[in-house]
Structures are given as structure tokens and as C-alpha cells.
């Protein structure tokens, strides 16, 4: 079967790419450290400068790139499958905007200056509030339209509150910090961020990965899926909570990184034979590759200038999105 073989090659290729990019991400930085030295320093217990750079700067950065990439790719694939719409993306259900608002509140109130974890914790709390609202709105009927509308409403409100915080900010430095934070970045993160995000992401990935077959059945529409024994309310709850937990945690530690969750599943879908269950792992690996590659690029393109990861993904992603819309339009014509 050629389709199955193509899929196996795809998974193997993406897995290899992710591994290579993860190692490259560990290599790239202002401190020139050789390959062997850096790997040795990762496990070294000497505590010298090289070990410090590797263990406390580069390793968390590479790990977060990997985790956030998996999160965006996986949740994007699940939401596209659940909503049966190739233009769906993780930010759609309002979790990213709400997590951003939580972070902005922490910066605005000065809490984040008092203790560093205040920012991600506040972001996670806001994401939690958002998901409760969205799930309550979508309700027991499991209507996807209500879910989208509730997500749009929550996103708009969170964006408005964020603008209000900027508007009222008496401290220009706080306003600048808010703006830079919202651009999305992996620089200057620590292992604490990794440990904070990991449990939420693992729980979210677990929930999302359980949906493969249900999403396959949903290809034929909600009623046919239900007639195949799929519990649509359970599918909706898992999709919302899985996305909220993993994307909420990703946004909390890195800010908003756009377009990965939109573009990666779309690109990989033909290689997965159009089957959502096959797309999930492929898209998770693809997302990891893209985020790791983008995070290497920001360091290579503008060393010392702190080019933001979210800026790069949006710069590349938005034209791609246009092309996507153009192609859909041509198909519909």
C-alpha cells in the first residue's frame, strides 16, 4: 500500500527533522561552543560557564520550542478536524488571547516584577477562565457554530482589555514590555518555565491524541459520526480542554506564536491521506520542526537584536495564509 508507506516516510522524516533541529537549536547562540563540548556540558556537573549556558539557557529554549511546536501543530490539527474547516487554528477558541490578557495583567500591575512566575501563572488562570466560559457557551448540544462564536467573543473581549491596559498604562516601560511580550518569544526562558508548562501540555496532548478516530468519523459529518458510536459531547470536551491546557500553557510561557497551528496541519494533510487520525502525530512533529527552525532563524538572522519568534512566524505565515485562501477560492470557483 503506497499510501501507508508515504505516511510512514512522512513520520520518519518529520521525526528526524525534529531531532536534528532540536540539536541545532542547542548549538546556536552567541557563545560559540563546539558540538561535543555542548553535549558534554548538558550532562556535566561542573557548573562552569559552558555548562551554565547549555543547561540554563539553551536547553530550556530548545525544550520549549519542541513542546510549543508539538502543542500548536497538534491542537491545530484537532481543531481543523473537529470543525471540519482547514482555516481553523488554536487561537480560535479564545484561549491564546485570554492567556495573553492574563500575562498583560501581571505586567501591568507590576506583579511580574515582584516574582517572575506571576506572569505565566496569571496567564494560565486567564486561559482557565476563558475555557470555562467557552465550554459553558458551547453547552451540552455540542454545536460547533456556538463554539466558534463564543471563541470570537472571548478573544475580542480579551484583546479589548489588553488594549485598555496599554491605553491606561502610565509607565511607558510597562507598555513596552507588554508589547514585546505579546510578540511571542523563547529567549530568556528557564527550566522553571519548562516545568510549569509541561504538566499542562502533557495533559492536553493526552486529551487531543485520544481524538484520532472520532475525528476520522467526523469527516462524514456530525450525525454520521454519532451514528458510528462517537460521543460528540465527549469529543467536544476533549478538544476544548486539550487545546486550552496545552495552548494556554504555551502562550503563558512564550506569548502568542501565530500561524503554526494553521499552516502545519494544512501542509501535511495530503501526506496523511486526508485522515485526521494520521494527521495528528504528523502535525505534532511538523509543528515542532517549524517552531524549532523559526527559533533558530531568529537567532541566526539577527543575532543580538532579539528578533521575536512570533513576528517571524507571522511574517512567513500570513502570506502563506493568503495563498491558502486564494487556493480555496480557486477550488470553490
Amino acid at each position: 500500500m503506497s499510501e501507508a508507506r508515504l505516511y510512514r516516510f512522512t513520520l520518519a522524516g518529520l521525526g528526524l527533522a525534529t531531532l536534528v533541529l532540536f540539536c541545532l537549536s542547542l548549538m546556536v547562540g552567541p557563545a560559540g561552543i563546539g558540538f561535543a563540548d555542548s553535549l558534554a556540558a548538558l550532562v556535566s556537573e561542573r557548573g562552569d560557564a559552558v555548562a551554565l549556558v547549555m543547561q540554563q539557557i539553551r536547553l530550556p529554549r530548545a525544550l520549549l520550542g519542541l513542546m510549543i511546536g508539538i502543542t500548536l501543530g497538534l491542537s491545530g490539527a484537532v481543531l481543523q478536524g473537529y470543525l471540519r474547516n482547514p482555516l481553523a487554528e488554536p487561537a480560535l477558541i479564545g484561549v491564546s488571547a485570554s492567556a495573553s490578557l492574563g500575562a498583560v495583567i501581571a505586567i501591568y500591575t507590576g506583579l511580574s516584577a515582584l516574582f517572575p512566575l506571576a506572569l505565566p501563572l496569571s496567564a494560565l488562570a486567564a486561559a482557565g477562565v476563558a475555557v470555562v466560559i467557552v465550554q459553558a457557551m458551547a453547552g451540552a448540544q455540542g454545536s460547533t457554530l456556538t463554539l466558534i462564536l463564543a471563541g470570537v467573543a472571548v478573544s475580542s473581549f480579551a484583546a479589548a482589555m489588553t488594549s485598555l491596559a496599554l491605553n491606561l498604562s502610565s509607565n511607558p516601560f510597562a507598555a513596552l514590555e507588554i508589547i514585546f511580550w505579546m510578540m511571542g518569544s523563547l529567549s530568556d526562558r528557564s527550566m522553571t518555565h519548562v516545568w510549569l508548562a509541561l504538566p499542562f501540555m502533557l495533559a492536553g496532548w493526552g486529551a487531543l491524541m485520544m481524538l484520532g478516530r472520532a475525528l476520522d468519523a467526523l469527516t462524514l459529518g456530525g450525525e454520521t459520526a454519532a451514528s458510528l458510536g462517537i460521543d460528540m459531547r465527549r469529543v467536544q470536551a476533549l478538544a476544548i480542554f486539550g487545546t486550552a491546557a496545552s495552548v494556554g500553557a504555551a502562550t503563558a510561557v512564550a506569548g502568542a506564536i501565530g500561524f503554526v497551528g494553521l499552516v502545519v496541519p494544512h501542509l501535511l494533510r495530503p501526506l496523511a491521506g486526508g485522515r485526521p487520525s494520521r494527521l495528528l502525530p504528523a502535525s505534532a512533529l511538523g509543528g515542532a520542526s517549524v517552531v524549532l527552525a523559526a527559533d533558530i532563524l531568529v537567532r541566526v538572522l539577527a543575532p543580538g537584536r532579539d528578533l521575536k519568534l512570533g513576528v517571524l512566524t507571522a511574517t512567513v505565515g500570513a502570506p502563506f495564509f493568503l495563498w491558502l485562501v486564494w487556493r480555496e477560492r480557486r477550488k470553490a470557483a
Binding site: A217, G221, S227
Partner: peptide, 30 residues
């Protein structure tokens, strides 16, 4: 219920470009 009753909806819907065989195989899910 899905092992007892199969249902062909009036509305014919296929969201993704999957192969005919993969689509027919969805009937085995229950």
C-alpha cells in the same frame, strides 16, 4: 447502538480528501 443500526444520512458530506477505501473502512469503527 452503532453495532445494531447503521445510518445513511440524506446529506452527503466528506470534509477531507481521503481515499474511498479509508472512507468505507470508517464503517468498522464501532
Amino acid at each position: 447502538r452503532a453495532r445494531k443500526v447503521a445510518y445513511m444520512a440524506q446529506r452527503r458530506e466528506v470534509a477531507w480528501a481521503m481515499s474511498v477505501e479509508a472512507l468505507v473502512a470508517l464503517g468498522r469503527l464501532p
